[in-house]
Computed example of a mutant assay.
Amino acid sequence: MSPTETELGSLQHQAQAWWMRLHSGEATRADADAFRQWATRSAAHAQAWRETMRVWSSLDPLLAEEAARLALPARKPARLFSWQGMSHALQSPGRRAFLGGAVAASVTAGVVAVYPPLGLWPSVEELAADYRTGTGEQRQLALGRDVNVQMNTQTVINRVGTGGGAGAETVGLELVAGEAEIALDGSASFFVDAGGGRLQARVARINVRYTGPQVCVTCLEGRVTVSVAGQRRMLEQGSQLFYDKSGMQEPVGADLAGVGAWRTGVLSFDRMQLSEVIAEINRYRPGKIFLRNDELGRTQVRMQIALRSIDNAPAMIHELYGARMRSLPGGIVVLS
């Protein structure tokens, strides 16, 4: 009797889980032994594994694109993020071939740990940070009586203190990546370093976003001094500016409601290009959405989506804008 559809579906999920485990950089010899027992249990198990390898092999171009986007120095993206050698080893009937492939894959494990393809797991830098949030996670920090920090999704922060030890006073923060709202109510000046610039304030509430080449600083209350590349400006309540390591732009009026929308649990887009909408959704949704249609990417979008329903975003885009949708393991969706 052939396996039922329910059984096949379950085996496919198991195969995908094995794939992620074996390529996480944390797989052990015991994992290897357990996997071989699973993969040789039946023809259905073997078929589920072959199908999983076929799907992930089709992701190689996407992985190469992501590596190229990151512009890793002195690396070849296609080689870095291709696990073809590991896949061949896993198909081999010999134990030595399998273990040899596993060892070869472990050589690149350190690289994919530092530069995780498609953001499927935290990088070494994220794991070593003082505070971090995962995809879709938000976190509140109270750093003493005078400093409160609300961390948005995919945010990495390091604490800067005076002296050493756990009791050291916090005098500043480094925003390595992501977005945070920082409320200050103290007599001493507090600083935030992000993207080559420094923000300083005593009594203020500011939103800092560092999710691309530029840093966006919005003064929600009080005032904050922004310093970068020898330039210095005072930012007043209700204004914002962008800067990078080369300098800063002139301050402009801020849409305060839009800046703080992430704290309400709803993403709202009004006349924003679909490509930009997908980039924002990718910050909150596990996996990755790829848009393979430049013309569709320029479509002006109006939509709202609750963060608790963020997994439904690809289906909403499919229904509202006619995008073709293909779902792959690990939360990866290709729209075209």
Score class of each variant (00 low, 15 high):
A261D: 13
A261C: 13
W262S: 05
W262C: 07
W262K: 01
W262A: 03
R263M: 12
R263W: 04
R263I: 01
R263V: 10
T264V: 04
T264N: 08
G265Q: 09
G265A: 10
V266L: 15
V266G: 01
V266Y: 05
V266F: 03
L267F: 02
L267K: 06
L267R: 06
S268P: 00
S268G: 03
S268Q: 14
S268M: 11
S268D: 09
S268A: 14
F269R: 08
F269A: 04
F269G: 03
F269D: 01
F269V: 08
D270N: 15
D270T: 12
R271P: 07
R271A: 13
R271C: 06
R271Y: 11
M272V: 13
Q273E: 14
Q273P: 13
Q273N: 12
S275R: 15
S275G: 04
S275D: 11
S275Y: 08
E276Q: 15
E276N: 12
E276M: 12
E276D: 15
V277M: 05
I278Y: 01
I278A: 02
I278L: 10
I278P: 02
I278C: 00
A279E: 11
E280I: 06
E280K: 06
E280F: 02
E280T: 11
I281G: 06
I281C: 08
I281R: 10
I281M: 05
I281T: 03
N282K: 09
N282E: 08
N282F: 01
N282Q: 04
R283Y: 04
R283C: 04
Y284P: 00
Y284W: 14
R285G: 06
R285E: 05
R285T: 05
R285P: 00
P286T: 04
P286I: 03
P286F: 13
G287Q: 12
G287Y: 06
G287S: 12
G287H: 11
K288Y: 11
I289M: 12
I289F: 05
I289P: 00
I289C: 08
I289Q: 04
F290W: 03
F290H: 01
F290I: 01
F290T: 01
L291I: 04
L291G: 00
R292P: 00
R292W: 00
R292D: 07
R292M: 11
R292A: 09
R292V: 02
R292G: 02
N293W: 04
N293C: 07
D294W: 00
D294T: 09
D294R: 05
E295M: 10
E295C: 05
E295S: 08
E295L: 11
E295K: 14
E295Q: 14
L296K: 13
L296R: 09
L296W: 03
G297F: 02
G297R: 09
G297T: 04
G297C: 08
G297Y: 05
G297I: 07
R298H: 13
T299Q: 14
T299N: 13
T299R: 15
T299M: 13
T299Y: 12
Q300V: 00
Q300Y: 09
Q300E: 14
V301N: 02
V301T: 12
V301W: 11
R302G: 11
